[in-house]
Amino acid sequence: MPLLFFVVSIGVIIATLNLPKARLGNPNAPVYFPMMLGIFLLILSIVYFIQEWRKTEMEEKEAVQELLQGRVPKLIGLSLLLALGYTLIFEWIGFLISTILFMASLLFLINGKKKWMVNIATALIFSFASWYAFGVLLQVSLP
């Protein structure tokens, strides 16, 4: 974890060096603040690293292990993939159909195949209700 912040802060510092210069006023004015933050984060990540290194017991270890147990990684990974799929088809095939598909597949994934009646019913009711509430009552322009 501290390593991640270390990499991020280095990345930020490099990115700030490549920022365009301001045309009016002090040309470096837009750079100072993010640069400062990058350096601050770099220092913090080192302190964090030392802190973790000195600690003998890892309180987070348990939580991480739980994350890798049983079907949990598959569940989270697939949920994220489904959400990505939803993002890709949302504007293409429209709100209603994509939401029904997304909702139904999520429910099948999480709630299980056995309760298919409940899953499909929830997906349909939810999608129509939200489409009605947002698209018709609130006049949000949905694709």
Partner: peptide
């Protein structure tokens, strides 16, 4: 369950006519 199905079909109809 029957009630639910009727409700569903009404909803579907409504959506279809709206479209």
């Amino acid at each position: 369950m029957k009630k639910l199905l009727i409700f569903l079909s009404i909803l579907t109809l409504m959506a279809l006519t709206a479209c």
